[in-house]
Design a protein around this nucleic acid. Sequence first.
DNA 1: TGAAATGTTGGGGCG
DNA 2: ACGCCCCAACATTTC
Length: 454
Amino acid sequence: MIRPSLVWLRRDLRLSDHAALTEAARRGPVVAVHVLDEAAPWAPGGASLWWLHHSLAALQADIAAIGGVLILRRGEAVGEVLCAAAECDAAAVLWSRHDEPQEQAAETRLSTALAAVGIEPVACRGDTLFRPGSVRGRQGQPLQVFTAFWRCALDGPPPPPPLPAPNRLERPARLPAGTSLPPLPAPRWWNGLQATWGPGEAGAARRLRDFLDGGVAPYAHDRDRPDRTGTSMLSPHLAFGEISPRQIWHAVHRLPASDGARVFLQEIGWREFSRHLLARTPSLPQQPLRPEFSAFPWRDDPDSFAVWCRGRTGFPIVDAGMRQLWHTGWMHNRVRMIVASFLVKNLLIPWQQGQTWFWDTLADADLASNAASWQWVAGCGADAAPYFRIFNPVLQGEKFDPDGAYVRRWVPELAAIPAKFIHRPWDGGGPRPMLDLKATRERALAAFRRMGET
DNA sequence: TGAAATGTTGGGGCG
DNA sequence: ACGCCCCAACATTTC
């Protein structure tokens, strides 16, 4: 009897284009295991836990349908994987490489521990088109500017084609112990998520098909319009690995070339860029990439932070975005930039606080993308928005939500405001917002200037 | 993947 | 017809 392989699943919750699962199935019997460690740093936040619950349930059913088994465990991941491997007498443990520093560290610990007990560790290709660190400039230098990074990435060999899903998994004689799915939070705050999403590999494939069938051509322009359905909404599926970027890449390359296709893949490029930055700089979620920002005079203002979180700033596009986030676990990317600029530049609240809120409320929360994007907005990151780039939420609203449809949808108390005043209701007799844009803009510019002088 | 201030130009009203 | 002013429209620069 061939000893089984254990496949350790993390954020690669799919069957297709899964190198570790495919290799394990080739070798013989397979046990898949997922470990939830709620005490780990950057453990899943609230919205991610909701998603994880459903994604694991879907994957368990998908694996069972081809004869396999997915075991769920809780606790410290490396220890649990070691135990599970022993319990089923595994000959090897396979996994997809993850790029986050703490995951890298866990992989190293696991490899060492497995080797010590005579179990083969097998790290398989991970969830990026290009392995972090492999994209370099002509002189071999790491690239800190997105456009240069992406140009070099596209100049290299294309990512390999996706693997088909195994059509059969063999079950071993002995199974490790398992627990049930992580419970859903007791107050049903997740109704809005349930109405918006279909977690799981099938849901991801459907989302990609719907997006590509609708035509990618308008994407180049429509992706900036929160009042339209111009984006793919694949981000949470990508974050949990229910679909791989290789699958997206090759699906897009089967279409005729267009501006929309190029711009869409460029967004995958930002995801790649973020991972490349995090792998190179593990402190990305904590420390500004530009060290001079350590001296920036951020304000401690819990009351204003709470007002921002709850979407009660009085600026319609900001409040709409924050409420869409709370309700659906997702926010349109244009609006993410607007609310982030507001927090960091108008309120002068540290970007790390915004990052933490997003981590808890975003279903697509991804350590690298979240950290890199907050640093980008704050002006302290790689290829960052210059400090003087301060979004005006009124002008941004008027430009990207011209009829106010997005605001009306998420801020119902403004539904009756005429379009002319929808992004500045105070000019039409509505309530005053929480702050003065001109004065806070001046305050931010002065603070940034002072930082530059010291 | 900004916004605001400042500069320039050109049409039109007017004396 | 001419110079002058105003100001919208656009371009440039500054933050």
